[in-house]
Design a protein around this nucleic acid. Structure first.
Lengths: 230, 230
DNA sequence: GACGCCTAACTTGCATGCAATCGCCCGGGA
DNA sequence: TCCCGGGCGATTGCATGCAAGTTAGGCGTC
């Protein structure tokens, strides 16, 4: 049985989802009263939730001026991928010796599903790719059994980026990305941490290239309408 | 001119210092009313500060049961050093091309001071080592100019550990550690990122070995009086 | 017409009050 | 003696009120 969550926790989770899902755009103003009314609670749990989100790096709080969803420069974006490239390959290598055949089968299943909905064809559905991808990576992180690395990584990943990422893959990069997943499964089945680590390194480098290119375009595109708030 | 801090910010900073300085021991209970009285503010900013500290991983909050300073198991400790060994060498390598001769001189000065107060002799003062060491590493992090890595690292370092670390170095390890600092300065003066990275890797491995040994002893020592609250 | 100041509405920061929950102690029963 | 249930004090979670700060708009002056 799951313990009833506090209002602050629900508010935190809700805002987190709204931000990560893209419903609250970067730069959007987050008024305490507005959010409190919208979520049916008082300002106190909203303040607490915003505070926590700020500590997680999802929102910025300027004293007496309120909270906004953080915005990302290209340089910060590259920094995030730099961090990922330091941590995720290591995590992947850690996961290999812990993975049972059943775990590998599960990852295999996820990788196949992603191929199914990711490649051009009748069943292509890029939106379905996001949760599958997340499940795949979460599974790997869980297998690594390394809470400290996992926490540091979670602080950096900032899923809004990942989400936008899939929508901007060109076909060659997307094929590579999906291929990496199946190759990682193969490496794990072979019990070879170095192989898995190398594949993950490529995987992130590929994602980074796509993301940075997309961000540059996006920056150029939104430069004319900056100051937008919602 | 520095903007006047809010009460919540001061409370956050104060509690942070108390925890990091060891004045609040791991496992210590943090009552809202008690802290509010002690710091001369109401419970609201205290709650906000605790919330932020929880997000930073310095305290744990159990709903309806209050906050406590986090405790560390040996496994978690090893995880922290694992993370540091992933990030700090990279940061150090990043710092090398950014360092001006003046920066290197400054680091050199810090390294020499540490040798001065760290080695056995009339001027030995291990407590003075802690801020010097921190200044040295902070300087390196600043030179790397990589906010994302820096943030992830800051989240993991948990200075209480570093502090205890210096008090438990055996002489050989301490000499190695201090030597690493001067060697890093040399690597930076030579403009060799790979050399600097390698030295930092050794530096952390050395610290890790000392820390894990000390933690094992400490765990054995405190096992008999567990449940202590303050 | 443009610039600067001043006022007013709004927002946040903090304090306090009240209700709900938790832990603890004590008494009763096996 | 040990285990279990009820009541009580203490503590947290949340709502609300008030004061300080900020922003935006209007007015007056140059």
């Amino acid at each position: 049985m799951t313990r009833p969550l506090t209002s602050a926790e629900r508010t935190h989770a809700t805002l987190r989802d709204l931000i990560m899902g893209g419903d609250l755009a970067p730069g959007a103003r987050l008024g305490e009263v507005e959010l409190a009314d919208r979520l049916g609670v008082s300002r106190t749990p909203v303040r607490e939730a915003l505070s926590r989100l700020a500590a997680e790096g999802l929102v910025e709080i300027a004293p007496n001026r309120g909270a906004r969803v953080v915005t990302w420069t290209v340089a910060e974006l590259e920094g995030v991928f730099d961090l990922r490239s330091s941590l995720e390959p290591k995590l992947t290598a850690c996961a290999v010796p812990h993975a049972t055949p059943a775990d590998v089968d599960e990852l295999d299943h996820l990788a196949r599903q992603m191929l199914d909905v990711g490649l051009p064809g009748p069943r292509q559905d890029l939106d379905a790719l996001v949760p599958l991808n997340r499940a795949f990576h979460d599974r790997l992180v869980a297998l690594a059994a390394h809470p400290t690395l996992a926490t540091a990584l979670a602080a950096a990943i900032h899923p809004p980026i990942v989400r936008r990422n899939f929508l901007t893959y060109d076909e060659a990069s997307l094929r590579r990305s999906l291929g990496h997943h199946t190759e990682m499964v193969a490496a794990m089945r072979a019990g070879d941490p170095d192989w898995a680590r190398a594949v993950m390194t490529s995987h992130i480098a590929n994602a980074r290239a796509v993301m940075v290119r997309a961000a540059r375009l996006q920056t150029a595109h939104t430069a004319t309408r900056e100051g937008e708030t919602a």
